[in-house]
C-alpha cells in the first residue's frame, strides 16, 4: 500500500470516527488539535483502521507520538505494513 492509499484509508477511518466527512487530509494536520479527535475516539479509530486496512495493530505498543499528526499515523501504518511484508 502506498502513501496516497494510506492517507485515503485514514480519511475513511477518521470520517467514520468523527461522524463527519473528513476531506483533504494533510500530513501536518494534528489529530487532536486540528481534527478534534478526542481520547475516547482513539480506540474507535484503531478499530476502524483495522477494518479498513486489514492491518493488525497492537494498541498496547502504541505511544502518543503515533497520534501527533496525520503524517505520524501514516508513518506508523506504513512501517507496520513493511514489517508484515518481511
Amino acid at each position: 500500500m502506498n502513501r496516497t492509499e494510506i492517507i485515503a484509508h485514514l480519511q475513511i477511518a477518521l470520517s467514520a470516527v468523527l461522524n463527519r466527512e473528513v476531506t483533504d487530509l494533510r500530513p501536518e494536520q494534528r489529530l487532536f488539535e486540528d481534527l478534534a479527535l478526542d481520547s475516547t475516539s482513539v480506540i474507535e479509530l484503531l478499530m476502524s483502521l483495522e477494518d479498513t486496512i486489514s492491518l493488525e495493530i497492537d494498541p498496547d505498543e502504541l505511544g502518543p507520538e503515533v497520534f501527533q499528526t496525520v503524517g505520524s499515523l501514516a508513518d506508523y501504518v506504513e512501517a507496520t505494513f513493511s514489517k508484515a511484508a518481511v
Partner: peptide
C-alpha cells in the same frame, strides 16, 4: 486499560 486508552494526553 482499554486498548489505546494508554495513549497519554
Amino acid at each position: 486499560k482499554l486498548p489505546g486508552a494508554g495513549i497519554a494526553f
